[in-house]
Amino acid sequence: MPDWLANVVGPDATFWLAYLTNGAHQAFYASFGYTLAAAVFGGMFAILFGLGGAALRRSRFLPVRAVGAGYALIVRGVPDVLFLLFFPLAFEQAVEWVIAQGVCTPENAGTGAWPPCPDANIFFSTGGYLAIACVALGIVYGAFASSAIHGALDSVPKGQVDAARAFGMSERQIFWRIRIRQMWIFALPGLSNVWMLLVKATSLLSLLNIPDIVNWAGRLGAPNYFPRAGLVHPDWRWKYYLALVVFYLVLTWASERFFRWLKRKAGHGLIADDAVAA
């Protein structure tokens, strides 16, 4: 910190500013990036899985419809914590199994129960786990999104579809140009709820050993008794967790404002505002 600033704010504030900007705190601030990345990419995957799930549920073939309905039913019924623990492990072992088919022979078999041989072992870096976490979040919240999208596709006014048919559009064209295009407006309220849930679920990243904000808040807030490890202080975790509470409140408040704006914008000129509100 420059001397002039230190002189202005006084020794106490200087001390706390230095403490709150040391390397460990900078790493804490940087870890907000994991949370935001998980929210954004998890949200993208949720839209993709939601569209896929809705498409399955609208299929002409019963087995395909059943898969779509089953996806929504099963994933929606499983707590997100459990799924976030289950999916990465299952995915990792599945990939290891596939690799093992190619590289493992009875000669190089490992001593442990898993993986079948050391060469088949894969190691996920933090980035890898983050990517898997995004997919897992996408699968969980895609199930919710698929219900919102499925319902929204049916909400597109019948007159619009009839008009398109009268213009000579094929079923495919009607689906992409009329239904999908207008579906978003009806899906937005549902999707904004899904986004809120997803944002809150990003607090679970530390379960996958990702050094996210919850992990760092716990570390920095834990009492320190050892002067060489930094400032000696009692249990401060509640202060750090409070900062996270504020962060999530601000994030969800901003999201709500954004979705309100988006709803107004998207519905503009297409259908009456009261139709969107209903």
Partner: peptide, 14 residues
């Protein structure tokens, strides 16, 4: 990284 002085995270975050 939480068992000082054996191992801990220092003020630089390392």
């Amino acid at each position: 990284g939480a068992y000082a002085p054996y191992n801990f995270i220092n003020e630089a975050g390392q």
